[in-house]
Design a protein around this nucleic acid. Structure first.
Lengths: 251, 251
DNA sequence: CGACACATTGAGAGCTGTCAAGTACCGTGG
DNA sequence: CCACGGTACTTGACAGCTCTCAATGTGTCG
């Protein structure tokens, strides 16, 4: 599984900018349209300047590039500013599995806190940009501002719940149910971000989806085709349009 | 799946002791043999008194009882002091899946931070006791003591990694590999707690194991039998003895 | 327009689930 | 102490879902 493709794992340089200047590489996070997602929810007005004081630069990651890779030393958290990334975990025998899909506003890098080294890799599914949040500065701020502390804790707990939900998907649901659950999840998250609930671009390949859902790319493809025949969705490659949302919900 | 049994979900009373006095119900955590596991790793000597000032009582949970259940309001974290518990998540259609096994020293309750309500249930696999760590007090202490903050963050990150490893098990491994991975995991954790790597009491039923590993209890049972025939393990019901550790590792 | 990655579809095999029967174990009550 | 009932466990037979292998179709980018 997942061994046929050899994704171009060109790790983005750590210090300094990406050579081929990606869009808005070093823009300030404070000028970011999705700033509210990067962290500050729940902060009082006079806490905001403190947050902006966090040297919160942005960084571009081009499609297929890794933001960080398993084994990299950890020192900063990220928040997706635009685009989307997948998180990937590797087994010792080389098999690897997609463990998460991160959309705008989602946090990234928490896996590094445990050991000071990253356990996953994070790879861009499209040209993306992320806010950089130095962990030590964030910790310092959390000690001063209880709202910030709350926010970070909730963020981590959120991830925990998201992952255990995915464990449930992997452990208890049939192929059909898994694909449906995935589509509904992406739909919801897309909607929450102000985009359409009904129509979105998956960005992931069928192989990525399969890896995330614990099945082969062929089964994913077959399932989507069947959904289309049943009038549940309209799928043109990675472009998905949900036609019968309730139908998907009831499997 | 998992519908045949109707586990006695007698939620333990929230205020006050359990009616049938369980062992050491209100003992102080500071007198606990596994105190070092409850939190303080990495704290400097003069931080310890602060930690003990956290009103850290213990509470008993009898086998089959729930420490907390999905939907319960969240206000305290726990750390397993003795015994073991399983965490269980429920799907809307009633199917439920074991999402984790918590042994002595493991944290419990983090799932409640996100929404202030618990998302999982935690049920004792044997008569157990847990340390009670009021979340608000813990937060307060994390703002004062950076070592404590570090510890909490790492704890949460650990859980995240543990869960994504389990996602990998569920998504990429065959039945044999899953069972082997589970046995090795329990063996390791048992060893880390000063017990035998080779011999342990699983406590979980085959059904729980199956639920955790995304397979049926019959397949679990068959797999264990096959392992036994191959001379990898010796299984007498819940009592497992690992004979060929390397054999298990190489599947 | 060709090269390449990605996606679709088919046929068959294999693993795991389902259903069913029988066995072992354990706590309870006589 | 033993008998009993119930839960947990084992094992078998068979079906069905998903994987594997393979061929073909489609889109994209240089």
């Amino acid at each position: 599984m997942l061994t046929s493709t050899d994704v171009t794992h060109t790790t983005v340089r750590r210090a300094g900018r990406t050579p081929t200047a990606s869009p808005r590489t070093t823009a300030r996070c404070s000028s970011c349209a999705m700033r509210h997602l990067c962290m500050p929810q729940g902060l009082s007005p006079d806490d905001l300047p403190k947050l902006e004081a966090l040297i919160c630069n942005a960084r571009g990651v081009r499609r297929g590039e890794s933001l960080y890779r398993a084994g990299d030393p950890f020192d900063t958290l990220y928040a997706v500013r635009s685009g989307s990334l997948k998180t990937v975990m590797a087994h010792r025998d080389g098999r690897e599995q997609v463990t998460g899909l991160r959309l705008a506003g989602d946090p990234l890098g928490i896996d590094g806190i445990s050991t000071d080294f990253h356990t996953w890799s994070a790879t861009a599914l499209e040209d993306s940009s992320v806010c950089i949040i130095p962990y030590s500065a964030l910790k310092h701020m959390c000690r001063e501002t209880s709202a910030m502390q709350d926010r970070l804790h909730r963020l981590m707990s959120d991830q925990l719940i998201r992952e255990s939900s995915q464990m449930m998907v992997l452990g208890s649901l049939s192929a059909d149910e898994r694909v449906a659950a995935f589509l509904l999840d992406v739909s919801t998250r897309n909607g929450q971000r102000g985009y359409s609930y009904a129509e979105f671009n998956l960005r992931m390949t069928r192989e990525d989806m399969g890896s995330y859902l614990g099945m082969t790319l062929e089964t994913v493809s077959r399932t989507l085709s069947r959904f289309q025949k049943r009038g549940l969705i309209d799928a043109q490659g990675k472009l998905i349009r949900i036609i019968d949302l309730e139908g998907l919900r009831h499997l």
